[in-house]
Structures are given as structure tokens and as C-alpha cells.
């Protein structure tokens, strides 16, 4: 009996060595989930996705005139387009810095985004959290001093990937524009603008396949708002080309940075006031 046991142990040791594969172990079991959004912006607002260290992201954003302007304006393409060129750089895997320039109001803006929590595949962190701040300077000739030209946005982004297909983001945000106006409309109505708006931006990325994903972005104001300010809504398509991320969309807003998108959108998507736009994102190693 003892011999049998010894023999079995000996044969098992030899046999195991000769035939067994090693067990496969993940190098980093607590790694972050796949990126929630394919680009640093959802459509008009920042996404919780950040750049990796050393990545330089060049962005071109366009928003054209209203589609409802008709065929004579080629459904908005003849209208004044807002354009923003921007560059963001991943200083670390959790911090990026950037700047850009928008055509409307000739705004130069500077921004920083930091990821303070990453969602992990192990579930040890169920959400991704990032904060973003942007400071804009309007440079149209107006006689205003620098402080009067400033505008600011702040966002705290909470994101979660629910599955391979679906990622969702909820972002409390604030917009502050130092100089606002009181205007009288042609019918005599007095239109007042607020300096500060609060909102909660909602965004989703629904992956269709490795190339395409549907984007939704809704930016409702919470609390007081300027007269005429309407909650912005956008729907778009992410296209991943293996080098670029193209974002094609319809949006109510022709403002391309957060503080203006929240506070100064005057068009109602669901009343038919939306426009065509696109973003192009290209990442370089730097």
C-alpha cells in the first residue's frame, strides 16, 4: 500500500512536469477598464477619458448653422461655423493640460483634466472620477479689461463602464462668465443673462462594434438660467480609424467649450433647431 502511494506520487510528479501547461496569470488583475469614451471629449463637453502620459491630442471641432435653414443654405453648411482648434497633452497617465481657440468670440481657453479614480476590472473601484477646469479669454475688440473677458468652467465627471458596449457619465458642472449683458429684444422684452449657471451633463457611449459607437450628450441647466438659454442636446457617431477618432454629430449648440455650451445655447434640439458638426481627434507621441 505504501509502495503504491509512493509510486503514484512519483509518477504524478513526473507526469505533471511533462505534460501540464503553466496556469495563466494576468499581469495586473486590478487594471483599469477599457476607456469609457474614445476621445477626451464626448461631443461638446469633456469626457472622463484622459490622455496617457506623453500623448498629444490635436482636436478640430466644427459646428455649422442650423439644418432648418434649408437647402438654400445647404442645411446649415453655409452658415457661420464655430471652429475650435485645440491641443491637449498627457503630462501623466492621470493629468492632461491643454489649450484651444474658438472662432466665436475669439476665445482662447486653457484647461486641465485630472483623473482621481479609475474604474477597475476587479470591481475594487466601480466608477471613474475626473475633474476638469477651463479658463477662457474672449479676445474680440471691445475695450473690456482682461478680468471682464474671462469665463470659466468646472466639471466633476463620474463615469462607469457597465458592459463592453455601454459607458455612461454624469457630470455636475458650473459655468461662470464674468461679463454678461442685459438686452432689449425687438419686441421690447428685456433679456437678462446670468453670470453663473449650474448643470449636470449626462453622456453615454454605446459601442456598435470596434469601429463605431453612438454618442449621446445632454447638458441641462439646473437652477437659474439666462433668458433664452436652452438645455443643449447632441447625438453623434464615434468612428475609430486606428489613428484618428472622428466624431460626427447633430447638436443644438454651436458653442464648443463647456462654459458657453451650458450658459449660452439658445437652440432647442427637439424643436428642430440642430446643426451638423464634427470633431477630429488625432493622437501623436510627444
Amino acid at each position: 500500500m505504501r509502495f503504491s502511494l509512493l509510486a503514484i506520487v512519483a509518477v504524478a510528479l513526473t507526469w505533471t512536469d511533462a505534460t501540464a501547461q503553466m496556469s495563466r496569470q494576468r499581469a495586473e488583475p486590478n487594471r483599469p477598464v477599457a476607456e469609457l469614451f474614445w476621445a477626451p471629449t464626448v461631443i461638446g463637453t469633456a469626457s472622463v477619458t484622459n490622455l496617457s502620459a506623453g500623448d498629444l491630442n490635436y482636436t478640430i471641432k466644427h459646428a455649422f448653422g442650423l439644418v432648418s435653414s434649408g437647402v438654400e443654405n445647404l442645411y446649415g453648411l453655409d452658415g457661420a461655423a464655430n471652429i475650435r482648434f485645440g491641443i491637449d497633452y498627457g503630462v501623466t497617465d492621470w493629468l492632461s493640460l491643454g489649450f484651444g481657440r474658438s472662432r466665436f468670440d475669439k476665445v482662447y481657453d486653457f484647461r486641465a483634466k485630472a483623473n482621481i479614480l479609475r474604474q477597475t476590472v476587479s470591481g475594487s473601484s466601480p466608477v471613474e472620477v475626473a475633474v476638469m477646469g477651463d479658463a477662457g479669454i474672449t479676445t474680440v475688440k471691445s475695450g473690456f479689461e482682461l478680468p471682464d473677458r474671462m469665463s470659466y468652467a468646472g466639471m466633476v465627471m463620474f463615469g462607469r463602464r457597465f458592459s463592453d458596449k455601454l459607458a455612461v457619465q454624469v457630470s455636475p458642472m458650473v459655468s461662470h462668465i464674468n461679463t454678461v449683458f442685459i438686452e432689449r429684444a425687438s419686441d421690447g422684452t428685456v433679456l437678462r443673462e446670468e453670470n453663473t449657471h449650474f448643470g449636470v451633463a449626462l453622456a453615454a457611449n454605446l459601442k456598435l462594434n470596434e469601429l463605431f459607437a453612438v454618442l449621446l450628450e445632454y447638458v441641462p441647466v439646473v437652477g437659474d438660467r439666462s433668458d433664452g438659454t436652452v438645455d443643449a442636446f447632441s447625438v453623434g457617431l464615434d468612428i475609430e480609424t486606428g489613428g484618428h477618432v472622428f466624431q460626427l454629430f447633430f447638436t443644438s449648440s454651436d458653442w464648443l467649450i463647456e462654459q458657453h455650451m451650458l450658459a449660452r445655447n439658445n437652440d432647442d434640439f427637439f424643436a428642430g433647431d440642430f446643426r451638423w458638426g464634427f470633431n477630429v481627434n488625432r493622437v501623436f507621441a510627444f
Binding site: 477599457a34 490622455l51 496617457s52 506623453g54 500623448d55 498627457g90 497617465d93 475609430e240 493622437v283 501623436f284
Partner: peptide
């Protein structure tokens, strides 16, 4: 060498 490319 490019984080975005790694993710893709």
C-alpha cells in the same frame, strides 16, 4: 509608445 494606440 502611444497610449491611445495601445488602447485601440
Amino acid at each position: 509608445g502611444i497610449g491611445k494606440r495601445d488602447k485601440d
